[in-house]
């Protein structure tokens, strides 16, 4: 999985343009918990990776979520 693919997915799911890896889910993307639920569901559908609740709550930025997802794909 590439960062660009995740950024594309986030842009579609959150309805935002020009999302960056450094963006903070709450401060920059104004993502609510339900947005994160939809995003986690979309990640599972697209990449086949289940994002645990703990990671969903802990990942503050796009980069942090990407880091988790890459550990899952390389494990």
């Amino acid at each position: 999985m590439k960062m660009e693919e995740l950024l594309d997915l986030i842009e579609v799911q959150l309805g935002k343009k020009r999302v960056r890896a450094s963006d903070h889910f709450i401060n920059d993307l104004q993502a609510e918990s339900l947005d994160m639920v939809h995003l986690a569901s979309a990640i599972e559908d697209r990449f086949g990776i289940m994002v645990p609740e703990k990671i969903l709550a802990q990942a503050k930025t796009v980069q942090e979520l990407f880091d988790f997802l890459t550990t899952q794909t390389t494990a």
Binding site: S33, L34, V37, H38, A40, S41, E44, M50, E53
Partner: peptide, 14 residues
């Protein structure tokens, strides 16, 4: 339950 809630687009607190 978490998986099903996500599939249906529902938050866990909801």
């Amino acid at each position: 339950l978490i998986r099903e809630a996500r599939k249906r687009g529902v938050s866990l607190p909801g």
